[in-house]
């Protein structure tokens, strides 16, 4: 089991944002977390990688209680990509990807051959090798997101968590990033993605978790979960569902 969450409850001051959620994620899964705004998707994702601590409940990664693992050790197992990164200092792309090696380094420790290889591989995989010597703020937002993924891959994580990584990208970069995730998943990496785009989530994820008002409302493969009744219930929107002609997966149209 890659990640296991047991009866997680989380609250900001008094509002319960996550209510008694349990789930397990097997190694090698491609999991999508969907749901309306404010359903608790992003909070859940942050709890699964230890950025936020739940009020009640236990998170285990690879059968170890996350509370008892050193934060650098967690980062060696789990990579986290947020929606949009603001780069307040204009580092070179290469320097940013090197920061992904942080969990493996002590203060002042020089990067080893192995670190350099991990960075080269990460740049190659995320297709940012051609930008290596460019300052990060000279890239487009789609390219910057790929650099962030490269930095996260340099951590050599077994599980990759992404919070709406494509939400502000154009069609080309959306598909480029999703294809990249699919390839990584094919190589054995677990992918957990929070996504607002139900069609994109349906096309790429093997399993979906639907969050609603802080609770786990439903889970299952896209084929069964993405149906008119459930979406009507959760999103209060009447939709039309058609089947993707090639991939045979439900796609949602607004009426």
């Amino acid at each position: 089991m890659a990640i296991e969450a047991q009866q997680i409850t989380f609250s900001y001051v008094t509002d319960e944002v996550i209510k008694n959620v349990s789930l397990t994620i097997e190694q090698g899964e491609f999991l999508g977390i969907i749901g309306p705004n404010g359903a608790g998707k992003s909070t859940l994702l942050r709890i699964l990688c230890g950025i936020l601590q739940p009020r009640y409940g236990i998170v285990r990664i690879f059968d170890q209680n996350i509370k008892h693992i050193h934060s650098k050790r967690i980062a060696q197992h789990i990579g986290f990509v947020c929606q949009e990164t603001h780069f307040s200092l204009n580092f070179l792309v290469e320097d940013i990807v090197h920061m992904g090696r942080y969990p493996y380094l002590r203060a002042f420790q020089k990067q080893s051959k192995q670190d350099h290889k991990a960075v080269d591989d990460a740049c190659e995989a995320a297709d940012v090798s051609q930008f290596r010597k460019r300052p990060i703020n000279s890239l487009s937002s789609g390219e910057r997101q790929r650099v962030v993924i490269a930095r996260t891959l340099a951590q050599e994580p077994k599980v990759l968590l992404l919070d709406e990584p494509t939400s502000h990208l154009d069609l080309y970069h959306q598909s480029a990033i999703m294809e990249l995730l699919k390839k990584l998943n094919g190589q054995g990496m677990s992918i957990i993605i929070v996504n607002h785009d139900l069609n994109l989530a349906g096309l790429y994820c093997q399993r979906l978790i639907l969050m609603h008002r802080g609770e786990l409302y439903a889970e299952g493969p896209p084929q069964s979960l993405l149906n008119r009744e459930t979406l009507q219930e959760v999103y209060h929107t009447d939709v039309e569902i058609i089947i993707h002609p090639e991939k045979k997966i439900p796609q949602i149209l607004l009426k």
Partner: peptide, 23 residues
């Protein structure tokens, strides 16, 4: 000065830093 690497990372936001293992 031992923390220069952490400061580099924090320039990309607190969540990024947290995700890389900085408390």
């Amino acid at each position: 000065y031992r923390y220069s690497r952490e400061l580099d990372i924090i320039s990309q936001g607190l969540e990024t830093a947290s995700g890389l293992g900085i408390n």
